[in-house]
Design a protein around this nucleic acid. Structure first.
Length: 418
RNA sequence: GUGGCUAUAGCUCAGCAUGGCAGAGCACCAGAUUGUGGAUCUGGCUGUCGAGGGUUCAAAUCCCUCUAGCCACCCCA
């Protein structure tokens, strides 16, 4: 019978191995600490949502059409693996009655998201996001707050050379008129735009500003800017956000070409980049205001603003920045017993465990080999146990750094190790 | 979704052009060291050469298909 192929991991999905987790943990704990310091509370929402929640929200964008993990469950429900956190968070905000508590609800979430992309560097089909949302209030101070929160987190991770790009895309009052201006500007140029942009012109002209194809670039400079055509409320919010960022000492560039392709996004849009990165590919995180999202989901109109960041890229950058993350050894103490002493070894380990992390080497190998693995594990102490010693309820306790070895009674181990 | 490159021992890779015994380093195991780690030395184990098909007396090597990985494009709600 032919040997079966080993079953490999699923394409685009990766394991975060123990040695990587040390780095990830520092990134995640910093996220948690910073979010909590801004008064945000952790929330966990399901990885699976109704496909409709995502689809209605991302209506006929390429992204949803091609990159959503959709499936049917055994009950015939059309479900999807969440591709981002906000839609589910807004849903939870209503279903969990946070809309009846103090506003805004300040929430954060760290967890896996799924997009059916072709995998490549820094892009996985399962990836992780840190997501922060302030739902239920429209003060521009909250826009500045989530920006400051994100910036604080990235800086705490040692990513100091950041560039913050900022823009406003208006709202349902002022944007329609602006889009008409934009169409009017671009219509005579239609033939010179690349194919995708020709289609965008009538359907979603805002995306013309975001196009990176060389042939479309020359026309951007003279295109009308949305920030010159904001209604009074949006203009006031735009001023407010910038005033607050100035006061917080957060530098930003006004990027008039930073836009979003979905209607429910309103006003503030922002993205963080590493300072040296020229491309728009390497955003470390971004976000903005989505006052139309709750409505799109079928809930009462409710404002919200958020920040999201891909941890896969952030950890990569933190690592590249040379930050020393020292992985703790798997165990401080390793118990090495002669063959047949498993029960005694387990009991000794139990005693040591009250003071230190302990692993037992049960392998039927030579003592020399066990010493070597204890050394590789980075153990600080080794506890040696022979049959004669087990009968006397003592062990040899060896300090791996100094090489010193002393006989210790079992009962004294916790004290000796603490 | 499109294109380029790649796949050989547990890991990193050589071998492929021009078909002819399956290799190296690391890791692992053992010994030098009569139960005691790190350094050194000696020895040993490890293979469906990604999968399937084709050409050939003969395929890791040439051809086709598939799968997976990397890189770029695209996308990033």
């Amino acid at each position: 019978m032919p040997r079966a192929e080993p079953i490999k991991g699923v394409r685009g999905m990766r394991d975060l191995m123990p040695q990587e987790r040390a780095l990830w943990r520092t990134v995640e704990t910093a996220a948690t600490r910073v979010a909590q310091s801004f008064g945000y509370q952790e929330i966990v929402t399901p990885i699976v949502e109704h496909a409709e929640l995502i689809e209605r929200v991302g209506e006929d964008t390429d992204a949803v059409a091609k990159e959503l993990y959709r499936f049917e469950d055994r009950g015939g429900r059309h479900l999807a693996l969440r591709p981002e956190a906000t839609a589910g968070l807004v849903r939870a905000y209503f279903e969990g009655h946070l809309n009846q508590g103090p506003q805004p609800a300040r929430l954060f979430l760290i967890g896996p998201m799924f997009r059916y992309n072709r995998p490549q560097k820094g892009r996985y089909r399962q990836f992780f996001q840190f997501d922060v949302e302030a739902i239920g209030a429209e003060s521009p101070a909250l826009d500045a707050e989530v920006i400051e929160l994100g910036a604080t987190w990235l800086q705490e991770l040692g990513l100091r050379d950041l560039r913050l790009e900022l823009n406003s895309i208006g709202d349902e009052k002022c944007r329609p008129a602006y889009l008409e201006l934009l169409r009017a500007y671009y219509r005579p140029l239609k033939a010179e735009l690349h194919g995708e942009c020709q289609r965008r012109l009538e359907k979603n002209p805002l995306l013309l500003l975001d196009c990176k194809v060389p042939q479309c670039q020359p026309f951007k400079a003279k295109a009308p800017r949305v920030t010159d055509h904001l209604c009074d409320a949006c203009a006031a919010a735009w001023d407010g956000v910038r005033r607050l960022l100035d006061a917080a000492g957060i530098e930003y560039n006004h990027d008039p070409y930073l836009v979003r392709g979905l209607d429910y996004y309103t006003r503030t849009v922002f993205e963080f980049f590493p300072a040296q990165a020229a491309g728009s590919q390497d955003a470390l995180g971004g976000g903005g205001r989505y006052d139309g999202l709750a409505r799109a989901e079928g809930w009462p109109a409710t404002p919200g603003v958020g920040f999201a960041s891909g941890l896969d890229r952030v950890t990569e950058l933190v690592e590249a920045s040379g930050a020393e993350v020292i992985a703790a050894p798997a165990a401080d103490v390793v118990v090495l017993a002669d063959g047949g002493l498993d029960v005694a070894a387990a009991e000794v380990a139990r005693l040591c465990r009250t003071a230190r992390s302990v692993a037992v080497d049960y392998e039927p190998k030579s003592l020399r080999a066990k010493m070597r693995s204890a050394n590789k594990l980075g153990a600080r102490w080794v506890v040696l146990l022979s049959e004669a010693e087990a009968e006397r309820k003592v062990v040899q306790l060896k300090d791996m750094a100094s090489g010193e070895q002393v006989e210790v009674a079992w009962m004294d181990l916790p004290e000796r190790l603490s």
